[in-house]
């Protein structure tokens, strides 16, 4: 039997519910309150179990429109993944390299990657935005963003 999208999803949700419940049952006990920390999580876990079972047997209402949303061309999927990798890179090295450099670099690389050709507009926006935001936060709002390898 081939699973429909909704049936597959409900199985995934069931697994989430089960692991959540497992953790809820393993919460440490605290003796001096009438209702302990595990009550609500247990209720939530069971609620999700029931809901995913209902969902499994519910009339499949996966419309054409939704199906269309899920169909992504390979190249487009690559785009999404690419931007995600860029974001992860940004996060990982933000505190080391510093805000100004990373932000400017991100804006330039990401914009270029998404296919915008105007270098001048991109670079000037990137520089103005990153320096401006840094100045605003550090000096205007006294919120310190990572300076990184730059001396200020």
């Amino acid at each position: 039997m081939k699973l429909t999208v909704n049936k597959g999803l409900s199985l995934v949700l069931l697994v989430i519910a089960a692991s959540y419940l497992f953790m809820a049952y393993n919460l440490p006990e605290y003796a001096f309150v009438p209702v302990d920390a595990d009550l609500i999580p247990k209720l939530l876990g069971f609620a999700l179990v029931i809901l995913s079972i209902c969902f499994f047997f519910s009339k499949d209402i996966d419309t054409e429109e939704q199906k269309k949303k899920r169909v992504i061309k390979k190249k487009e999927a690559g785009m999404l993944l690419g931007v995600m990798v860029l974001i992860l890179l940004y996060i990982t090295v933000l505190e080391v390299v510093g805000f100004v450099i990373m932000t400017a670099a991100f804006i330039i690389v990401c914009t270029r990657f998404l296919g915008y050709q105007n270098w001048i507009a991109t670079i000037s926006t990137a520089v103005i935005f990153s320096v401006g935001a840094y100045a605003l936060f550090n000096y205007g709002l006294a919120i310190r963003l990572p300076a990184g390898i730059l001396p200020f």
């Binding site: 991100f106 804006i107 990401c110 270029r112 915008y116 507009a121 926006t125």
Partner: peptide, 11 residues
């Protein structure tokens, strides 16, 4: 332009 806007929203 969209690509630039996207980068700015993410940042």
């Amino acid at each position: 332009p969209r690509p630039l806007l996207i980068s700015l929203v993410i940042i």
